[in-house]
Simulated assay, not measured.
Amino acid sequence: MTSTAVPAAVLVDGGYELAEGGRWFDDRYVYVDILSGRLFELRDGTGPTTPRQLAALDVPLGAVAPVADTPGAWIAAAGTGIALLTADGALEWLDRPEDRTPVPSRMNDGVADPAGRFWAGSMAYDGTPGAGSLYRTDADGTVVRVLDGLTIVNGPAFTADGTTMYVADTAVGTIFRFQVDPASGDLVGAPEIFARLRDGEGSPDGMTVDQEGCLWVAMWGAGAVRRYHPDGHLLHTLTVPAPHPTSVCLHPGDNRLYVTTARYGVTNPTAASGAVLSVPVPVVGTAACSWRVGH
């Protein structure tokens, strides 16, 4: 395992309370500020630039994926459930399952898989152990609870063929690996513990898989990003100039890693806390997937 402190360029200065959900869609980088319910895009990721705000909701916004063949429309993990977000900012709820939980909760991170389904996790506002769940939204808009008993659900991240899914339970410092049937979206077999973090190593947050099949993980509380081989061993650790990195995204055509960070919980934040960072890396990623209706 190697460790480096690579110079990280600040693309967007700190100011976000909880920037998250960074993804590359087509020719743009898209991310959210969860607690303020805002969605942003960056069209030019090569240097400091001004993000464009695409939406501002009156509920927290955990993550989005574009709706295939519907320009300007998104599927969103927002508030207490899953909604369609139109180009004019209107929300159409598909389901709000977290309204039916015993403690106040919200949706968190989410991503579309290569088969066109949208997966998103949840968490209790107070971090109640076991109150988090993982949901899958199918092509017909049905929202299915796939897993429960988790605490703070982050990711998921999928391999390019859609058969392997990584999910982090941030609160317990564990990354799980699941086998997925791409045809049905069902989980196959029992979950595998892919990595378990020790005290002082930080907590696994947002994740992505690179073109070599390796898993990149933002390490909340550790000011670092880790890269794991598919066999589970740690390949590399990158130090970033913010204690709470929250999500990672690899440019699909350029050797750049985008990292969102949080000001939340930082006593003396700098411009890099609550920022979007860019770090040169030796690998590339793949463009994120869309939610496909009726596939």
Rank of each mutant, 00 (worst) to 15 (best):
M1Q: 14
A5K: 12
V10G: 11
V12A: 01
G15C: 03
Y16D: 15
E17I: 13
E20L: 05
F25T: 12
R28T: 09
R28A: 15
R28Q: 12
Y29R: 06
D33M: 01
I34M: 02
R43T: 14
P48E: 10
T49G: 13
T50G: 08
R52Q: 15
L54A: 12
L57H: 00
L61A: 09
A65R: 12
A68G: 05
T70L: 13
W74K: 11
I75Q: 03
A77I: 04
G79L: 01
G79Y: 01
I82L: 11
A87H: 10
A87L: 04
L91T: 09
P97E: 14
E98V: 07
R100S: 13
R100V: 06
T101Q: 14
T101P: 05
P102F: 04
P104Q: 11
N108A: 01
V111E: 10
D113H: 03
F118E: 08
G121I: 02
S122W: 00
M123C: 03
M123V: 00
A124M: 03
Y125C: 05
G127R: 08
G130T: 11
S133G: 14
D138I: 08
D140G: 14
V144W: 08
I152A: 02
V153P: 02
P156I: 10
T163M: 06
V167G: 07
G173I: 11
G173L: 11
F176R: 13
L187D: 00
L187I: 09
V188T: 11
G189A: 07
F194R: 06
R196E: 13
L197A: 07
D199I: 06
P204N: 12
M207F: 01
T208S: 12
D210F: 06
A222G: 12
A222E: 12
A222Y: 08
G223D: 10
A224E: 14
R226C: 13
L238G: 12
V240P: 07
P243C: 06
H244T: 12
S247K: 05
V248Q: 01
P252Y: 07
G253K: 06
V259M: 11
R263Y: 01
P269C: 07
A272T: 09
S273C: 14
G274S: 08
P282A: 10
P282M: 02
A288C: 07
V293D: 15
G294P: 06
